[in-house]
Design a protein around this nucleic acid. Sequence first.
DNA 1: CTTCTGTGAGAACACCCATTCTCACCGGAG
DNA 2: CTCCGGTGAGAATGGGTGTTCTCACAGAAG
Lengths: 199, 199
Amino acid sequence: MSPAAIVDHAEGESAALTAAADLFYKHGIAAVTMSEIRDQSGVSLRRLYTLYPSKVDLVSAWLRHRHQTWTDSFRHRVEQRLQSGDVAIDAIFGALEEWMTETEFRGCAFINSHAEASKLIDDHREIIRLHKESFANYLESLTSQGRALAVIVDGAIVQAAIFAGPDPIHHARHAAEALTAAVTDLQESADSGSDRGLE
Amino acid sequence: MSPAAIVDHAEGESAALTAAADLFYKHGIAAVTMSEIRDQSGVSLRRLYTLYPSKVDLVSAWLRHRHQTWTDSFRHRVEQRLQSGDVAIDAIFGALEEWMTETEFRGCAFINSHAEASKLIDDHREIIRLHKESFANYLESLTSQGRALAVIVDGAIVQAAIFAGPDPIHHARHAAEALTAAVTDLQESADSGSDRGLE
DNA sequence: CTTCTGTGAGAACACCCATTCTCACCGGAG
DNA sequence: CTCCGGTGAGAATGGGTGTTCTCACAGAAG
């Protein structure tokens, strides 16, 4: 039971999950075969099935893994911007835009998976709900109006996947600014928020 | 070539399309087999394939049909509310809420289809884009900020499909009101020009 | 009546895929 | 050295699916 043993046991696991993540995200769950995952990962079918007893288990592992990595990456980007002096809305939408302009961007893995309706097990639906719930909570910790902001962001993600351009995210940012500005107005006039170019 | 002949030629076509529409929307495209469409419609496989040479053609016909029927239904609901004196935002979100609370609601057929990525032909992607484009144009004819509103609405649809409750649509309406309120502020009071539907 | 066209019912075909199995092989244990 | 558990490569299995084909039949035309 040395540390090396643990590494040994996990051998190929990370390669398999990485390949699965790449393929599932790019092509959708149903369109990817176990053989393709073997080809891309170099992990044999036999080992694949000892690591994940069925494709369902692999999908499940992918969704959990995706939740972790995506959340980490997004929060990291947001926090970087916050430390650069960005206000919350700018940090959030800057991070989103950065993600959406990646060449591999194909929308939200969880929304996409949810659309493959009948093939999903209840287990998967639960992970999807939890991811969206977690994301909304995070936005809520950054701004008031977090739930409404989450709706806007999901709309932007979906439209960015359908139309390839940058318009959806700009419209979303515009809506988000109106949303938070309205609250700011209510919250006392305070200083005169000179509307920066909302572009 | 009497009118009866035309009817004869179309015999079963409507039944086939109705069944396909129901099944595709409920279960997703890939999950529905031609045999299931035959069983539910009563149209034999042979006739099915003379009407639609391949499943791809049937999917294509469904998307076009869905665009028509959904758009008609939505506009009808909106116009009813407008005539009842609702302001544009209330008419739009009232119509949406009515749709989303139907028991068969499973999100937007176009967003869902788009998520089944690799199985879609370019033809289908184009229909999906056109539908969203058309919808945004319609919102734009009803309110200023139509594009941003379209983003919010898509977010609400997606979240309503994931979470079953009414919260997403309420958050969306809240955001939409903030959006138009902000513009109204800028535009001074002014009167509301009632745009007739275009197209 | 016969002939021809088009149909329904369903078998047949030609794939594809998740999952399992075979078998030769390799490294460690005794 | 032999023995053995676990492995990779890939074939086999069992089931499913889009599409086509067979065949018997119904009805219009001659």
